[in-house]
Design a protein around this nucleic acid. Structure first.
Lengths: 349, 349
DNA sequence: CTAGTTGACCAAAACGTTTTGGTGGGAAAA
DNA sequence: TTTTCCCACCAAAACGTTTTGGTCAACTAG
């Protein structure tokens, strides 16, 4: 506090008194609502400016049930317990972009932790709406918000709640198909999948799609799971496990997280295998690790900025919509960033 | 909205009626305040749980003038107009860490844009306190908040407001000294400085410190300015400018931003100069670009996580403090990440 | 027997808005 | 002249809490 002034904020009463009208008139004048003589309106506006009056958002919120804040819960970080795993830039870029988009639409964006833990929903239920990224199965946060009639938009589906339709990011299935096709085109004949262990739709739907493809194409399903939190070290451990196993190594590996991909690649290289020569690698999420590995790893650009924008837009529409109007989730498209980890010399197009 | 139930939320009145006591008693029972018969308290608590009651944060906020939200304004992104410049990971890591720390202390963290633009302070003045990262000179946001008696903590000082003491991140001066010393130790004899153009203390204090050092050591002051928003391209342009100029090239360059540093290095290399052989480079902020350039660029780790934690802790203390209690800003220390861009073979220690 | 104390509870005010349902007066219509 | 209508404005309720200042009965102290 640089100065000790900290004068009491001017209220609507002060403006009313000062300009000699009722608070009703002040409210109407400032919000352009009632029918008011032009001169009066101007006088009110001027005194309001004079007094440095600005309406109290809390009081306004109480009356109008609208705070002007969107909540954002990022489940994977939530369960990880840490928001600072180095190199998990997807979520931070997502949050940043969501904030901008929210601000552009007149909302603030508040990052929150799972409001169902502890006994303090606290501020959570005061937000006008929620974005929840990568919900877990039967997500309690969705349940809580839904029960309280607060609009929710999810990024990724709740795999145990088929009736919850307000989600976007349906690309998981398509992405898996695209990656498998990409690897096959580049010559892979034994394609493996590495997922995380969180119980969300990204992991589940990727595995399901992969298994369907494997069955259809007569390939054995080679699925590995690894804790997301272990990052690159987890990827390296997995590589060693693959090498130690009796089974022959895959020649194409699709790792959902960028850090697992980088770790798997490093682990294989440490054991003398060539990427992409012996084994090709693709990551399901582009990140610093995939861009900067040697060789750089082909990845899916999950377009956090575009996704965040779409999620906010969707949520705001939902908030503004009449309760029974049907609002459809927007589609977001993803792209494969084709890098050296899948560029076999022979297969170069 | 998966279900259309959206039942009206239970209020304190409902709980009162259901358990046959007054709302006063309910409030006291739930907040552990008054003196209440044990049995009654338990009954109230039970019915509250039954009804799924949780106090409305807005109403509570109106009464107690405390919303449970901290605001965060990141000035550089604010003036940039975009929160998604690739590779500006410092701020997003800062925001993420601040959110975590805030949540741990029972607050939500809301990212906000400069509340003085437009005519809508809106939700801004409702926050319990503000963190403002890298304030500009005579920052209007600080002025606004201060005028309204809202606690503010800045990261970086407001260079035109010496009486504003609630800021942290005093390391700029020390860092500049350390970098210059580092370059000199490694053999540089003509050290240049590249700052950004935002009018904040990082740029200003770095330049001031550098100029003092130059004067003291009898070296000519070689200072370049470049728009932060231009990123690596701006760095490359600057490198070309240096080369084209009549003056002889520096042999050590301290670029404040990581992206400028990467660009300058790339530009020099493109013109045939060796890093670190001919010219050494240091960045004032570690980032993806500095870590992954070839060679990797020696950088100062601005410790966004530690800084964010400290800022939140400081702010919360300020909020909780009696208005006249003196609260001192915490210190944060920084480290040089010594990388190949300043490792001349001869100078290897 | 009276005065004071304490334990358990409650009615009403307060927070700063927005909104509802007015009122009074002048001009136009009958 | 009376009625109708509209314009300009206002008093009070409402939003859901917390807090203030009680009341009342049952004890305890004198």
């Amino acid at each position: 506090m640089s100065n000790g002034l900290a004068r009491r904020r001017a209220t609507i009463h002060d403006v009313a008194k000062q300009s000699g009208v009722s608070i009703t008139t002040v409210s109407h004048a400032l919000n352009g609502k009632g029918v008011i003589a032009k001169a009066t309106r101007q006088r009110v506006i001027d005194t309001a400016a004079d007094l440095g009056y600005s309406p109290d958002a809390i009081a306004r919120g109480l009356r109008s049930r609208r705070l002007g804040i969107l909540g954002l819960v990022i489940r994977p970080l939530d369960t990880l317990g840490s928001y600072q795993p180095e190199g998990v830039d997807y979520f931070l870029r997502f949050a940043g972009a969501a904030a901008v988009e929210a601000l552009d639409r007149g909302y603030g964006l508040a990052l929150m932790r799972d409001p169902t833990v502890g006994n303090a929903p606290g501020i959570a239920l005061a937000a006008d709406g929620f974005i929840i990224s990568d919900p877990v199965a039967n997500d309690p946060v969705i349940a809580l918000l839904d029960r309280n009639g607060i609009p929710v938009v999810a990024v990724g589906r709740d795999i145990e709640r088929p009736d919850f339709t307000a989600w976007l990011g349906a690309g998981t299935v398509t992405n898996t198909d695209a990656v498998v096709r990409h690897l096959a085109e580049r010559g892979a004949e034994r394609i493996a999948l590495v997922t995380g262990e969180d119980n969300n739709s990204w992991n589940a739907d990727s595995e399901k799609t992969y298994r369907e493809w494997a069955k259809k194409s007569g390939q054995p399903a080679l699925v590995y799971h690894q804790d997301e939190g272990l990052g690159e070290a987890g990827g390296r451990a997995l590589a060693e496990e693959m090498i130690a196993s009796d089974a022959s190594l895959p020649d194409g590996i699709y790792c959902l997280t960028g850090r697992h991909a980088a770790g798997v690649q490093a682990g294989l290289q440490a054991a003398g295998y060539q990427v992409p020569g012996d084994i090709m690698i693709v990551a399901g999420s582009d990140s610093e690790q995939t861009r900067n590995s040697a060789p750089p790893i082909t990845s899916i650009d999950l377009a956090p900025e575009a996704t965040a924008k779409a999620a906010v837009a969707f949520l705001v529409e939902l908030i503004d919509a009449d309760s029974d109007a049907e609002v459809l989730p927007p589609a977001v498209s993803y792209q494969i960033r084709d890098r050296a980890s899948t560029r076999r010399v022979a297969a170069l197009s």
